Simulated scan of single mutants.
Amino acid sequence: MKIDTHESIERSLCGEPIKIEKGCSEVRLECTENMAADSSGLIHGGFIFGLADYAAMLAVNHPNVVLGSAKTRFLSPSRIGDVLTAKAKDTTPEEHKHLVQVEVFCNEEKVFTGSFTCIVTKKHILS
């Protein structure tokens, strides 16, 4: 399926799409040294949130989709070298408002979960 949103996103920081279907997506992110929050190798949560947000946007896959709100939970820390996979599913596909459930895994372990409210505007939000 063609990607119709977030065409300029930096994939090394937000993830590489590995599956795009109507109403769902999967995105893979390798946790690298430049994402570390401290010398222990802990990955800053903002990168994990960015991965999940990007997966939610791809599940909706509309040029004008933006994030309205998110309720998230970090379940386990991530480290340099971890490979994360975000799986997103649009549970309420409506014309303008979408509730997208996202889970992020490191191997089989769920490390993050979130509900993302995505809004499709009539025109680009900066227009």
Rank of each mutant, 00 (worst) to 15 (best):
L51K: 03
D82F: 01
A52R: 03
D90H: 14
D38Y: 14
I9D: 07
S12G: 08
D90W: 11
T92R: 14
G46I: 01
Y54D: 06
V83P: 02
A70F: 05
L99W: 10
V111Q: 00
T92D: 13
T117K: 11
L13N: 07
P77Q: 10
S115I: 13
F112L: 06
F74Y: 15
L99T: 13
V102S: 08
K89F: 11
A59W: 12
I119P: 01
N107C: 00
S76H: 12
T113N: 09
K71V: 15
T113D: 08
S8I: 14
D38F: 12
T85F: 05
E16R: 02
G68W: 10
G15P: 00
V120W: 07
T85L: 05
V66R: 08
A59F: 09
T85V: 14
G114C: 09
H62P: 06
D82V: 01
D82G: 04
V83Y: 10
G15V: 02
A56R: 10
C31F: 02
V104Q: 03
S127M: 04
D38M: 14
M35N: 10
L99I: 15
T85E: 09
I9A: 15
A86I: 07
T85N: 13
L13W: 12
G46N: 10
T121A: 11
S78G: 03
G23S: 04
G23M: 07
K89T: 15
K123C: 06
R79F: 14
F74A: 04
S25P: 10
F74P: 11
L13A: 11
A56P: 05
S8R: 15
V27G: 02
E30Q: 10
H98W: 01
S12C: 14
I9W: 03
L67N: 08
G46R: 00
A37M: 06
K2Y: 12
E94H: 14
V100Q: 08
D38R: 11
E30I: 11
T121S: 04
G45T: 03
V66P: 05
N107F: 00
S127F: 07
H6W: 14
H6S: 12
T85M: 09
A52G: 07
V102Q: 15
L42Y: 01
E33C: 08
S127H: 04
S78C: 12
V111K: 02
N34I: 12
G23Q: 04
A56D: 05
E109F: 00
N61A: 08
C106E: 02
H98P: 13
F49L: 02
F49W: 11
D90I: 02
H98V: 10
R73I: 06
C106W: 01
S40M: 06
A88H: 03
E94C: 07
M57F: 14
S12A: 10
H96A: 10
F105T: 00
V60W: 13
S25C: 12
I48A: 03
T5P: 01
F116S: 11
L29M: 00
I20D: 03
N107Q: 01
S127K: 09
S115K: 14
L99K: 13
S12P: 05
T91G: 03
I48Y: 02
I125G: 01
S69P: 04
V100T: 08
V60L: 07
A70I: 09
L84S: 10
V102R: 05
I43L: 01
V65I: 13
S69I: 00
V27Y: 02
H98C: 08
G50R: 05
L51W: 06
G81P: 04
K89P: 09
T5F: 07
